[in-house]
């Protein structure tokens, strides 16, 4: 199913309208069931918020005696927050840029031209979206040692980009399929080259789709622990996902309040970015549609 640009937004209210007006008891039962689930999912999140404001935070959920932002000011140092976050931004930002550019370029011929090999190529792409990347990290480490890419931020970014690329191409192609060809054909007759057509006609028309691909890619990279954990060694190069582990991972007399505060700082960007795309494209509809093809 190709995903027209505005489909999800139109789909959402319709889906909500379709909800039948069943009996009151049934709705109450559904509400109760969902509330139980919501509470169960919320407990660890509540711990996160309360502990970050508690100077004497423990492992349990409890109300802070006197709420304070001391935990935040304690972790807002170069060593704990700023350097790792900057590294994360450089690595994930650079890798996202590379992924989106490569995916947009690759999606164009795959979406527009037919040939004997475009279908096998797409199936290979789809196949590699599913491969467990975790499994190839040992050989990747070995390769990176031999070509001196180990412990470099750009090497890590290159690998992250390659790992996210199959899904990005797939998603991008589905969005591009939704852009009508008519305008493009007009550009062709006016003598535009393929690069001009892609840059001036197609990409502006699929702006929200492009944003979804970029943001989804960035979220996946920002949260990735194993890749930088394997490929980066020196502390000053580590992104937040690994530095948080090094600072707080050695359990014992650790400051849970500071751990919670840093977790919030580290998670906020991806949560905000997710809200951005979910508002724009009706939650998981874009992703669900893309996954279903």
């Amino acid at each position: 199913m190709p995903l027209p640009r505005r489909l999800p937004r139109r789909l959402l209210p319709q889906a909500l309208r379709q909800v039948p007006s069943r009996g009151r008891p049934q709705r109450l039962a559904a509400d109760a069931g969902l509330l139980v689930a919501a509470v169960a999912f919320a407990v660890p999140l509540v711990w996160l918020v309360l502990s970050s404001l508690d100077a004497e935070a423990t492992l349990r959920v409890r109300l802070p005696k006197s709420p304070t932002v001391d935990n935040f000011s304690a972790v807002l140092t170069d060593e704990i927050t700023f350097t790792p976050m900057l590294n994360s931004l450089l690595i994930c930002g650079g890798a996202t840029l590379l992924t989106v550019v490569c995916a947009a370029l690759a999606a164009y011929p795959l979406s527009r031209f037919r040939s004997r090999f475009s279908r096998p190529y797409l199936l290979t792409i789809l196949f590699s979206t599913c491969l467990p990347i975790t499994a190839i990290m040992v050989p990747v480490y070995g390769l990176f040692v031999q070509v001196n890419l180990i412990d470099t931020r750009y090497g890590t970014a290159l690998f992250l980009a390659a790992a996210q690329l199959p899904f990005a191409i797939w998603l991008m192609k589905n969005f591009m399929d939704g852009v009508p060809r008519v305008l493009e054909e007009a550009a062709w007759t006016d003598g535009a080259s393929w690069s001009q057509t892609l840059l001036r006609v197609i990409l502006p028309l699929m702006g929200p789709g492009l944003a979804v691909v970029a943001i989804y890619t960035f979220i996946m990279m920002w949260g990735n622990f194993f890749v930088p954990f394997m490929l980066l060694l020196s502390p000053e190069q580590l992104p937040a996902s690994v530095s948080i582990f090094n600072f707080f991972g050695n359990y014992g007399a650790i400051a849970f309040g500071e751990l919670a505060a840093f977790s919030i700082l580290y998670s906020t960007p991806v949560v905000l970015l997710y809200i951005l795309i979910s508002r724009r494209l009706g939650g998981g509809f874009a992703l669900g549609g893309a996954v279903k093809g």
Binding site: L45, L48, G223, V271
Partner: peptide, 12 residues
């Protein structure tokens, strides 16, 4: 709630 749990980084 369910989606927040999903969006949070793995290590958090």
């Amino acid at each position: 709630m369910v989606i927040t749990a999903w969006v949070l980084p793995e290590i958090v």
